[in-house]
Each structure stands twice: as structure tokens, then as C-alpha cells.
């Protein structure tokens, strides 16, 4: 780890100006950035500490919940408005990391955390995300944890955030110092440029998230499957939001973690349910639609099965289907 400069601006304008330096980076909780720097996966000359900015509030106004970028994961998870109107967000957060990390980490940093692909975090290994063009050892190597959706021949790393999967399910909007970005447009698939993970520009600051309060979001839930009971990333995760009229699905959001290179929404799976009754048949059809384009590698084929099982289990619980 090389030496870096440190600045702690007090307002957004200063922060953004300082972050314009060529190898500058914001730091919020530091729970990911510092690991990346210590592991040699990233290196920065200037660290801009944004914890002095007034971006920590969580407020509900005019049918919208606004969560500041610096709100801590634990505070968002416990907030009454979030728990009432956006249960999937609270559940996704409570299923993330550990209490210690949730107390440190901010939601803005969370959606920008980087993949846990072991090759990416090993400074002794090539990786297209770390050094574009150097190759992707995961394609033919160890890929049990890797994506079956949204991958390319350049990268199949999973986006690890649980919160992002939940935010995608509740139609969140990302607010930055210069624009509003629908959450669905925020993360990008790797394609030929796996080093690009979002549409955020260099030095662009996330100031918060806006989420509409809707009946759909109010009936939402998160299911996370993983290799140990807690303190572990998803092997497979599903966020579902369901609005029913009688036995018919009026509207639905289905988003997925652990299986895709970015927080993954499946319009095809949603279409298999929307306007139809929630039954074993339609649920199965939704699962099939989700994985239709899946590409598996040596060790991750089980995710295709497991994600359909997770979707099935979650929809049955949420919709009361036996």
C-alpha cells in the first residue's frame, strides 16, 4: 500500500472538487475500500473522507422515503419507515455482513462495494476487472461463487451487495451531486469493460436514494441463501415485491443476488406472473423464465436450480401459496 493524501471536506461542493483529482477516491465507512487497498486490488493517491458531509438522514415525505448516502446500514435497517414501507430493504440489510460492519458501513458505499471474486482480490493473479485485458482466470478456474446471468467472456464476477438487490426491487432512484439515476440503470454488466461497474462518473458523489412508498414495496421480502448462517455473502438471494388483487398478481418485482454480475431484475419472470394467479404452475414458469439465458461454468451450475427453488420458496411464503 503506497502513501496517500487525506482530506475531510465539510460540504458537497468541496468533496466533489477534491474528488476530481486523477486517482482520488471517496471513503465512507471504509469497510471495503481499505480492504481493497490493503489487498493490493486498488491503489489511490488521495482519499476524500465524506463522513463530515450532512448526508446521513432518513426521511419520509410526499410518498417518498429518502435515505442519505451516509446513513449507516444498521440505522437504515432499523428505521421505522423503512421497516414499515420497505421491508425488503430492512431484511436485505439485516442479512448483510455483521453488526460491526453494518454500524460502520454507509449505504452509498454499500452499492459501490466490489466483487468478492477471489482472483480479483489477490494481487498475485491476473484479472480483467483489475487490469483490463489481462484475462479472467475464473472462467476456467474456481467459479462456484460466480454468476450464471449477465456474464461475458471477460468477467463473470457476482455483484455482492444485498442492499442493491432490494433497492432494485423497490424502484429506487440514485441521487448524485449532479443527476438522478434510476437504480435499474445504475449498475452495468461487464461486457468487454468489467472494470466499469456503474454509470457513475469519476468524482461523482452519491448523495442518497429516493424510494417511492407503494403497496408493492410494502409487501416485499428478502431470502438469502449462503454457506453459513450469517456474516457471509449470498450464494443465491431473491427479493420479491408482490401486489395482489384477490388471487391475481397485480404487480410484481423480482430481483436477484448471488447469481448475476449486477443486481438482477428479471422482467421475464415478472411477466410470467403479472395478471395471473399465483400458483405452483405460474411460480415454476417464472423460475424457468428467469434462468432461460443462464450460462453455467464448471462449479456454478447448481445456482440455476437453487435460485429457482429460492424464488419458489419466497413467492409461496409471500403469497401464501401452499
Amino acid at each position: 500500500m503506497k502513501n496517500f493524501t487525506y482530506a475531510a471536506p465539510r460540504n458537497v461542493a468541496d468533496a466533489v472538487r477534491l474528488a476530481g483529482q486523477p486517482d482520488a477516491r471517496f471513503i465512507a465507512g471504509g469497510t471495503d475500500l481499505l480492504n481493497l487497498m490493503k489487498d493490493g486490488a486498488q491503489s489511490h493517491g488521495a482519499i476524500i473522507d465524506i463522513n463530515g458531509l450532512a448526508l446521513g438522514d432518513i426521511v419520509q415525505r410526499n410518498g417518498v422515503i429518502r435515505i442519505g448516502a451516509l446513513a449507516r446500514m444498521s440505522d437504515v435497517a432499523a428505521h421505522p419507515a423503512v421497516r414499515r414501507s420497505l421491508p425488503v430493504v430492512s431484511e436485505a440489510l439485516l442479512n448483510s455482513a455483521s453488526p460491526q460492519i453494518r454500524n460502520m458501513a454507509a449505504v452509498g458505499g454499500n452499492v459501490l462495494q466490489r466483487t468478492r471474486c477471489g482472483y480479483f482480490r489477490d494481487s498475485g493473479t491476473t484479472c480483467n476487472k483489475k487490469a483490463p485485458g489481462s484475462g479472467c482466470p475464473a472462467l476456467e478456474g474456481e467459479n462456484r461463487g460466480h454468476a450464471v446471468l449477465g456474464g461475458s467472456d471477460h468477467c463473470i464476477a457476482v455483484h455482492p451487495s444485498d442492499l442493491a438487490v432490494a433497492l432494485l426491487a423497490v424502484d429506487a432512484v440514485v441521487l448524485t451531486d449532479r443527476r438522478r439515476i434510476p437504480f435499474a440503470d445504475f449498475h452495468v454488466v461487464p461486457g468487454t469493460t468489467p472494470d466499469q461497474e456503474t454509470v457513475l462518473g469519476h468524482g461523482e458523489l452519491i448523495t442518497g436514494f429516493e424510494i417511492p412508498v407503494t403497496p408493492l414495496a410494502a409487501r416485499s421480502r428478502y431470502l438469502k441463501l449462503r454457506d453459513r448462517a450469517t456474516f457471509e455473502f449470498a450464494v443465491v438471494a431473491v427479493a420479491a415485491a408482490l401486489n395482489m388483487r384477490g388471487n391475481t398478481v397485480r404487480d410484481v418485482r423480482l430481483t436477484f443476488g448471488g447469481v448475476a454480475t449486477k443486481p438482477w431484475r428479471s422482467p421475464e419472470a415478472e411477466d410470467a406472473l403479472r395478471g395471473k394467479p399465483l400458483t405452483t404452475t405460474t411460480i415454476t414458469e417464472a423460475g424457468r423464465a428467469l434462468v432461460r439465458g443462464a450460462v453455467t461454468r464448471d462449479h456454478n451450475a447448481f445456482k440455476v436450480d437453487l435460485v429457482q427453488r429460492a424464488l419458489d420458496g419466497l413467492l409461496r411464503d409471500l403469497g401464501g401459496v401452499r
Partner: peptide, 19 residues
């Protein structure tokens, strides 16, 4: 990694022990 005989999970966030 079977081709490089290099450990892919050399840290406690990917080498899992019971919590």
C-alpha cells in the same frame, strides 16, 4: 485453483469458519 495450485480464498471472509 486447479491450474495454478494457488489458494483462491486466503482470507477469513471467503475461508469460512462457523460463526
Amino acid at each position: 485453483d486447479r491450474r495454478t495450485a494457488r489458494v483462491v480464498n486466503p482470507n477469513l471472509s471467503t475461508y469460512l469458519l462457523a460463526v
